[in-house]
């Protein structure tokens, strides 16, 4: 704790207190010595000074605790590191996925045991939210695939919950599972299995091969290649977007050190909330589009 840092802390604390007292003094003074417009401007100025000095104080405290800013040099692992669990070495994303599934199970149990028996005819509150979610998943699936199967609606519901859960985990500065190529590739594999399953169920095995060779048998290899490219492209899209968001947030946090006190929440509003939701929506829409195309 060098004298410079202690000096910074003390000065910022004193400035914060001074601004606060000045602001209160201005508010409660009898308003005949300063006219109201100037009073409001002074009020705003003192508020700004208060916020700035409080921010600087917290930044200095955090810098003291965890070392200063690191500069632009940031390290990250492309694939998440592995932990050792019961003698097996599983990757960290699997453990995070287990935690997400456990949390969602707990919430579902609470819902089933306490909220569901109190369902009324006219919904309000939590019942409204749950009904909207279930009905949105169902209607969306039915409208995109022309009423193929009710199981598909349930799968889309759980997939949406999973990706939203991954976005929520990222808020706690844990590496989200969707920024791991293996996890998104497994999601793409499930989509691939679903496409082929529904295609074969609807058209039969011969019909599926015939659809691959449909205008002209010459283009069959290209169609097979584009069919294989579907899950790969889905996986890469989700992985790339999530990894990019995570890198930007990491850069912000490590290169600014303690000075990034308020900015991470503002940037996290886009990179950790809005962007993953859009990517989840894209993933689901593309899955349904490809399934619809395979069962035309």
């Amino acid at each position: 704790m060098s004298t410079a840092s202690i000096l910074k802390l003390v000065i910022s604390a004193v400035a914060a207190v001074a601004f606060f007292i000045a602001k209160n003094y201005i508010k409660h003074k009898p308003d005949d010595s300063i006219e109201p417009k100037k009073k409001k401007k002074l009020n705003r100025l003192f508020f700004f000074g208060l916020v700035l000095s409080v921010w600087y104080f917290i930044a200095c405290v955090i810098n003291e605790i965890s070392g200063g800013p690191n500069g632009i040099h940031v390290e990250f692992d492309l694939f998440s590191n592995r932990v050792s669990l019961f003698g097996f070495s599983v990757s960290q994303t699997t453990v995070t996925t287990w935690c997400i599934v456990a949390v969602i199970t707990l919430l579902s149990l609470i819902f089933r045991l306490f909220v569901f028996p109190k369902f009324k005819d006219i919904p309000k509150g939590i019942q409204n939210v749950v009904e909207i979610m279930v009905e949105a998943a169902d209607n969306f699936t039915s409208s995109q695939t022309h009423n193929l199967s009710p199981v598909l609606g349930e799968y889309i519901f759980s997939l949406a919950l999973m990706i939203v859960g991954c976005a929520a985990v990222e808020l706690f500065s844990v590496r989200p599972p969707t920024s791991d190529l293996i996890f998104t590739f497994s999601l793409g594999l499930v989509t691939f299995i679903l496409i082929n399953y529904f295609g074969i169920k609807k058209k039969g095995f011969g019909g599926r091969i015939k659809a691959l060779a449909s205008p002209n048998p010459i283009i069959m290899p290209m169609k097979i290649l584009s069919d294989i490219a579907v899950p790969v492209s889905l996986a890469c899209r989700l992985f790339g977007n999530m990894l990019g968001g995570m890198i930007v947030m990491d850069l912000l946090k490590t290169s600014l050190g303690g000075y990034a006190v308020g900015m991470t929440s503002l940037a996290g509003l886009y990179f950790n909330l809005f962007h993953p939701l859009i990517q989840a929506y894209i993933f689901i829409v593309l899955t349904l589009t490809f399934i619809n195309e395979a069962t035309e």
Binding site: C236, R237, G240, V285
Partner: peptide, 24 residues
């Protein structure tokens, strides 16, 4: 528009992923 933008961005994301793999 949002759907189309996210789809058109995917090729840029592929290049980004390859750059990351090469750089690491």
């Amino acid at each position: 528009l949002l759907l189309g933008l996210a789809l058109a961005e995917s090729t840029a994301i592929y290049g980004f992923v390859i750059a990351l793999i090469l750089q690491s």
